[in-house]
Amino acid sequence: GIQEIVAMSPELDTYSITKRVKEVLTDNNLGQRLFGESILGLTQGSVSDLLSRPKPWHKLSLKGREPFVRMQLWLNDPHNVEKLRDMKK
């Protein structure tokens, strides 16, 4: 599951990941809330907090790293936007 992926993950640049996620969401007119609930399993508040103030990787616990790994996996998925759009319906 995701825990193994997080444990094996190389250090991620949390700042550039969140910046990229925000760009993709904005460009495709997708909400942070939808993204947070569907992709990260987080509430709106947690998501906007994460996206606006990402902590550096080395300061995060494994649990804290999980959303960033999920974001990275989502960014790597060529169908990420379509999938999210489908969830919106």
Rank of each mutant, 00 (worst) to 15 (best):
G1I: 14
G1S: 14
G1D: 14
I2P: 05
I2K: 07
Q3P: 11
Q3K: 11
E4I: 04
E4G: 11
E4H: 10
I5V: 11
I5Q: 13
V6A: 10
A7K: 14
A7T: 09
A7I: 08
M8S: 14
S9V: 08
S9H: 15
E11K: 15
E11P: 13
D13H: 01
T14N: 01
T14A: 01
T14V: 05
Y15T: 13
Y15L: 12
S16P: 01
S16A: 14
I17N: 11
T18I: 11
K19C: 07
K19A: 10
R20E: 07
R20M: 08
R20P: 02
K22W: 05
E23Q: 13
V24D: 05
V24M: 10
L25F: 03
T26G: 09
D27E: 13
D27G: 12
N28W: 02
N28S: 05
N28T: 05
N29W: 03
N29M: 13
L30N: 01
L30C: 05
G31A: 10
G31I: 03
G31S: 15
G31V: 02
Q32S: 12
L34Y: 08
F35D: 00
G36A: 15
G36E: 09
E37V: 07
E37F: 02
S38G: 10
L40D: 00
L40I: 02
G41I: 00
G41D: 07
L42R: 08
L42D: 09
T43V: 06
Q44L: 11
Q44W: 11
Q44K: 14
G45H: 13
G45F: 08
V47G: 04
V47W: 08
V47S: 06
S48N: 09
L50E: 01
L50D: 04
L50V: 14
L50T: 06
L51R: 02
P54Y: 00
K55H: 07
K55E: 15
K55P: 14
P56C: 05
P56M: 05
P56T: 03
H58Q: 15
H58L: 05
H58S: 15
K59L: 15
K59M: 15
L60D: 06
L60R: 02
S61G: 12
S61T: 11
L62S: 11
K63M: 10
R65V: 00
R65M: 00
R65N: 06
E66A: 06
E66T: 05
E66F: 01
P67K: 15
F68K: 00
R70Y: 00
M71C: 07
W74N: 01
L75T: 04
D77A: 04
D77P: 01
D77T: 05
P78H: 08
P78Y: 06
H79Y: 13
H79D: 13
N80I: 01
N80E: 05
V81G: 02
V81W: 04
V81H: 03
E82G: 10
K83P: 01
L84C: 06
R85C: 10
R85P: 01
R85D: 09
D86N: 13
D86L: 12
M87W: 11
M87R: 11
M87T: 10
K88N: 13
